[in-house]
Simulated scan of single mutants.
Amino acid sequence: MSTHTSAAPRIRVLQDRLWDAVTDRDEHAAAAVVFAALDDGIDVETALLDVIAPVQERVGTEWAANRLSVAQEHAASAIAERVIAALAHHPAGRTTPRLGRVTVACVDQEWHVLPARLLAEVLALRGWQVDFLGAQVPTPHLIEHLHTNGADVVALSSSVPTRLPAAHAAITAVQAAGVPVLAGGAAFGPDGRYARRLGADAWEPDARSAARRVADGIPVPLPAVGRQQIDDLPHLADQEYTLVVRSRPQLVREVLSQLESRFPAAAAYTEQQREHTAQDIAHIVEHLGVALYTDDDELFTGFLGWTAGILEARQVPAASLGPVLDVLSTELKDFPRASRLLDRARTVLDALPPPAGHDPGASDDRTSPSAPHPGS
């Protein structure tokens, strides 16, 4: 997507220098790398999207492979956000607004703010008046902001698929206020399938294409008085999503109560490991719920496959997921769609190759792997 193909080796050098700075937790060195690049002729948008963003993606990849701790990942992300904020005040990053107004916000309960922040900065650089509302914006607050300040477009960001129901509520409410919605972020799928399914007016995979889409214009949606989420997703009428989500605490307790008998290695878990296991089970149920919400098998099977890889990287056997699926299948046997999802997830899990040289009874004091999601 970059227009700086000829500068690719130069960009890679900058990425490596920034990587060294953020993994050393050296904020000043990170800022120095970026500011020196600006002095050397790199424009601010390139610094944001071709230097900072790829380094943050690498941070997530290294965390998933268990080569960075959660604390290291958080520190690197915090440094990236502070460098971006400093760039916004750099003379090279100042642009007088001359176009329309765009509101950029993360959906309710979405804390992964970097993709939205990058879009907000790119839009501002291109001359838009941007209201950046930040992470986890409750829908009523977003609508109040629109009524008070107006907007030509609302750009909604979500990285974690379990936030899709909240995204759907926000999309519906914003459109009812007469403002089109541009959706973005990993939660909406690599091809934007969930953005379309939830009725967004547009979807784009990255900040550059999103900025172009805003510039091209997104038509104002037709009034949809009384429109409900079930109008977009008629399968919700079976109530499986609602019942599974409401039953999550009981489902987690039931899985934990049966885990030792089905997976004997769990008997040796420490209290911390049991707590992390409960968190993992809760996230599995959450993803089952959102797969029921979207009626998309791949959302759940993809999450289980990704989780298996995360566990194996931490020397926790992916086989430990099998008993979880078995108990959930028994508990939800009267739910046809949930049963289908669990059966397909078990097929995916059974097809995974065993890791070479792995001790099937191994475990560790990992942090729960469910914070990010593939592509976040």
Rank of each mutant, 00 (worst) to 15 (best):
L311V: 04
V33Y: 09
H358N: 07
A237D: 14
G93S: 06
P97M: 08
T5C: 01
V55M: 06
R82T: 06
H89V: 04
R340E: 11
A36W: 05
A151K: 15
T139W: 03
H74F: 10
G178A: 08
D365Y: 12
S69W: 10
R196S: 06
T330W: 14
E81R: 15
M1S: 12
E271K: 13
I143V: 15
A345M: 11
W63S: 05
A169N: 03
V174N: 13
A202F: 10
D39G: 15
L182A: 01
G100P: 14
D295S: 13
T277D: 14
G192F: 02
D39S: 11
L288I: 01
G289C: 06
R196Q: 11
D201N: 07
T162W: 12
D191G: 08
Q239Y: 10
G185N: 14
P97Y: 05
N149P: 06
A170T: 00
A177R: 02
G217M: 00
T96L: 06
H358F: 11
T301R: 06
D152M: 11
P190A: 09
L341C: 03
R346P: 09
A210E: 10
L156V: 01
V22Q: 12
V13H: 15
L352G: 02
C106L: 00
T294A: 04
A351S: 08
A291F: 08
R262E: 09
A345C: 06
A120V: 00
E331C: 12
T242L: 13
H235W: 02
V34N: 00
I11K: 02
D40H: 09
D16L: 11
S247Q: 05
D191I: 05
P234A: 04
E298V: 03
A183Q: 02
D201T: 03
P234C: 00
R274D: 10
R101I: 13
D26S: 04
L133Q: 01
V225D: 13
R10G: 09
I171K: 11
A151H: 14
L99S: 09
V160N: 11
N149Y: 15
L332D: 08
V55Q: 10
A88M: 04
A176V: 09
R12S: 14
E312V: 13
V107M: 01
D216Y: 02
H74A: 07
S2R: 00
V83L: 02
W63K: 08
Q272F: 10
E275N: 06
L68D: 08
G100E: 11
G309A: 02
F132E: 14
L48A: 01
L325H: 07
D364R: 15
Q15A: 02
T307R: 12
S157P: 03
R346C: 04
R25Y: 09
V122Q: 08
G185A: 10
R340P: 09
S329Y: 12
V179D: 10
L146N: 12
R227I: 15
W111H: 04
S376L: 09
Q15M: 03
S339L: 05
T148Y: 07
A268W: 14
P140H: 04
Q250M: 03
G305D: 03
V55P: 11
A8H: 08
L142V: 06
T5D: 13
P317V: 00
A65G: 07
S159G: 15
L243V: 14
T61R: 14
L87P: 03
P97E: 07
Q15Y: 07
A151E: 05
A319Y: 05
R337E: 12
R262Y: 11
E271T: 14
